[in-house]
Nucleic acid binder design. Structure first.
Lengths: 370, 370
DNA sequence: TATAGTTCTGAAATCGATTTCCCGCAAGCT
DNA sequence: AGCTTGCGGGAAATCGATTTCAGAACTATA
C-alpha cells in the first residue's frame, strides 16, 4: 500500500498529498480538505468517495503544511523540574496522553533547577511556535517565563500565577491530604510530629508548610511539638531533615515530608541509624510516586493525581484558547488524599495508640493501588 | 521588541517573517535565507545587515514552513518500554539533550508493554513525519516496527536488528559489566550466585543471561551453583525471583539481577524476610538508575551509560541520513561497567572472604558518582 | 579592449495544506 | 413564471520558508 509508485514518483505513505486524493476521488482539493476537517458540509456521496480514496492511498495530512496555513502548530510545551524525581516522568506521560488524544504533540523539558537550561528550552518552545505551555516546576515565580509571556503564549502554572494575560492557575488543595495525614498520625497516638519542608521562598512549599501548621494546630500541637525543617526537595534534603529531627529533644515520633524523594532520604537515614520504621518512627511522604509502594517499608503518603493534574492543565489551555479576550485569571482546584501503607503506626510507647488490625490495613492498601 | 506593531499588524515575536527581515535589511528574502542557512556565499556587508535586522526584529525561521519546503521535519521519535522504570526517563532526557543540540525535537512514547499503545504512538510518529526513530524498548523483535519500516524511516534499535533497510543496531557489551560483577562477587568469596533474568524470549535478556552463564563458568561455577530464574523486568519480577532463590537448598549467597527494578524487588523481599543485605545476602543490579544510590542499602550495580546510549543512537541516525544507499547494517558498541556500593560483601560464613576496608569502599563509591 | 568566466543577487516557483471568493443550481416564495 | 435565497463545490490566494533560474556586476584572460 505504501511505498508504491504513483505518477512515476516514489511516494512514502506520508508522501501522498491532497491533490492525489482529490484526483482519485474526482473532486477538488478543497473538497478533500472540507471532508477531512468536517468544517463545512459536503454531499454524502462525494464524502464517501473521498474517504475511500483516503483509505486506499493511506493519506494523512501533512502537519507542517497544515500548521503553516492555519497558524496553529499543534505542539505544546511541558516544563518540569527534574527527571530524576519519578513524579515528573509520571506526570509527563499523563500529559502526553491527554494531549495526544487531542492530536497535540508535547515538547518536554526539565530545568534540573538550572536557569540556563530552562531558558534554552524555552527558546526552543518559542521557536517551535508552541500553542501553550504547562509549567509544572512548582517554581513558576522565577522569570523563566518572561519570554513566553512576551510572546503571549497561553500558560498554565501550579499554585502561583504567572503574571501573564493569558494564564490559568492550578490550585492544588494541599490542606486536604496533609490534614488527613496529620489526623491519621494523631489517631495513631502521635503527639510530636516533624515536618520536612521544601525550600522556602517557593510558594508551593509555603502552602504545604502552612497546611501542615494548620493541621498540627487543629490536633492541638503547639509549635514546639510540630518542628519544621526546610531543605531541598531531594533525597539529600531528606537526609538533612532526618538528621535534624533526630537531634531534637524530645524527638518527634513521626515525620511528614513535603515530597516523596525527601521521605526516601529520611528512611535511609533512619535505617542506617538503626531506627525502625514504623516501630520507632513513622514517616509520611507527599506525591505518591510509583516507587513509594516498593521501598522499605512501603510509604504512607499523600497522593496528588498526575492524571488530574495533566487533565486540568490541558483543560486550562483549552480555556485560554477559547477565550477571545484574555479573560480573568481562572483557577482550577486539584485535590489530594492520603494513601496509607506501612511506614506509619502507633508510636512505641503510646498509651492510647490504636494498633490497626490487618483487615483495615489491607483495605487501605487496596485503595492505594486502585 | 516583540509584540510590536509593524505594517499596522500585530506581530508576535515569532510572527516576524523573512520578508520583513529582507525589507529591513534592504535585500531579497532569498538572500536572508542564504544568510541564515549559510549554504551559499553572500557579500559580507549584506550579511552583516541581514544579521542585524534578524537581531532587531527577533526573527526565528518558522519551522513549519521550513519543514514543508525542505521535506525534513526535524522531529525524531523515541520509543521506550515504560516510564515507571527510572532508567527510561534518564535515557529520554539524554536523548532529548543530544537531539536538541542538533535542533531536533523528540517525540517520546512509552509502550508500557502494551501492543495497542505502541501502535498508536507509532502512527503518530508517521503522521508527524519523523526523520528517524530510536527504539529503546529492548524488545524490538516485535512487529511494532513494521509500519515504520514500510515508511522507510531510519531506525536505531538495541541489540536486535530490525529487519529494515535503513537501520543501525546498538550492540551493548553486557559481558563486560556482568563479568566484573561476578568477578567481584567471587573475590568476596561467593560460590553460589543466583541470576534473576528478564523474560526469556527477548534477545536482550538472552544476552544478559548468557553473559552471566559464561562469567559464572569462568570462575568455576557449575550450573547448579549458578541457578537462574526468569521473570519480568519489574519490582514484582524481582520479588518472585527472590522467593525462588530463598527456597533453593543450599541457598545462594548472592543474587545478580538483570535490571535495577528487579533488584529493588529482591531487596524488599529480603528485608521483609529478615535477611540482611549484604551481611546475609549480596545483591547486584543492572542499569544504575539514579535511585540505586539511595535505596537501602545503596545498590552495587552495572552501569549502562544513558549518555553513551543516547549519543550512539543519534550518531546511528546521522549515519543513516548520510548514506545514500541504504547501506550495510552497521552496529555501534556500548560498554558497561560495575559500580560497587554497599549491597555486596563477603558471605557470612566464608572462610576466605576478604572484607573490603573502608578506603577501598570509598574509592569505589567515588567512581560511582563521577 | 573584447570576451569568457565567476560571483552574487533577486524574481518566481515550490512545498501541501486551508480558506476565501464566486458561480451554478435547486428550492422557496409571491 | 420570475425572483430571491441558500447550499455545495471549484479556482485561486495564502501561509513562510527554500531553491531554481537567470541576469547583473565584476574579474581574469587573450
Amino acid at each position: 500500500m505504501s511505498g508504491q509508485v504513483l505518477n512515476g514518483k516514489k511516494t512514502r505513505g506520508g508522501g501522498v498529498d491532497i491533490t492525489q486524493v482529490a484526483q482519485r476521488a474526482g473532486v477538488s482539493p478543497a473538497t478533500v480538505s472540507r471532508v477531512t476537517n468536517g468544517r463545512s458540509t459536503v454531499a454524502k456521496h462525494l464524502a464517501k468517495r473521498v474517504w475511500r480514496a483516503i483509505e486506499e492511498l493511506g493519506y494523512t495530512p501533512n502537519p507542517q503544511a497544515r500548521a503553516l496555513v492555519s497558524g496553529r502548530s499543534r505542539v505544546l510545551g511541558l516544563l518540569v523540574s527534574e527527571i530524576t524525581n519519578p513524579f515528573f516522568p509520571e506526570l509527563m506521560q499523563s500529559f502526553e496522553d491527554v494531549a495526544g488524544e487531542h492530536d497535540f504533540e508535547v515538547m518536554v523539558g526539565s530545568t534540573n533547577y538550572n536557569r540556563e537550561r530552562a531558558s534554552i528550552f524555552i527558546r526552543r518552545l518559542i521557536q517551535r511556535r508552541v500553542e501553550g505551555v504547562a509549567v509544572m516546576t512548582f517554581r513558576a515565580e522565577s522569570h523563566f517565563l518572561d519570554a513566553l509571556i512576551a510572546e503571549d503564549i497561553p500558560l498554565v502554572t501550579i499554585d502561583v500565577s504567572a503574571n501573564a494575560a493569558r494564564s490559568v492557575v492550578l490550585e492544588v488543595d494541599y490542606a486536604q491530604g496533609i490534614d488527613e495525614a496529620v489526623q491519621h498520625l494523631a489517631l495513631l497516638g502521635h503527639r510530636r510530629i516533624g515536618f520536612a519542608s521544601g525550600p522556602m521562598p517557593h510558594l508551593t512549599n509555603v502552602r504545604r508548610k502552612e497546611a501542615f501548621v494548620r493541621a498540627a494546630r487543629k490536633i492541638g500541637l503547639t509549635a514546639d511539638k510540630a518542628p519544621i525543617f526546610a531543605g531541598e526537595h531531594t533525597f539529600e534534603g531528606g537526609t538533612l531533615a532526618a538528621h535534624h529531627f533526630l537531634r531534637i529533644e524530645p524527638r518527634p515520633t513521626a515525620i511528614v515530608c513535603s515530597n516523596d524523594m525527601m521521605a526516601v532520604g529520611v528512611l535511609r537515614v533512619l535505617a542506617t541509624s538503626g531506627i525502625r520504621v514504623p516501630r520507632d518512627m513513622s514517616v509520611v511522604g507527599f506525591d505518591d510516586i510509583h516507587l513509594a509502594e516498593f521501598i522499605n517499608p512501603p510509604l504512607t503518603t499523600v497522593r496528588m493525581s498526575r492524571q488530574d493534574l495533566a487533565q486540568a492543565a490541558f483543560n486550562g489551555l483549552e480555556k485560554l484558547w477559547s477565550e477571545e479576550s484574555s479573560g480573568s485569571l481562572t483557577s482550577i482546584r486539584i485535590g489530594t488524599r492520603l494513601v496509607v501503607r506501612q511506614s506509619t503506626d502507633s508510636p512505641k510507647g503510646a498509651a492510647n495508640g490504636l494498633r490497626r488490625n490487618k483487615s483495615t490495613r489491607q483495605a487501605e492498601t487496596q485503595t492505594a493501588s486502585a
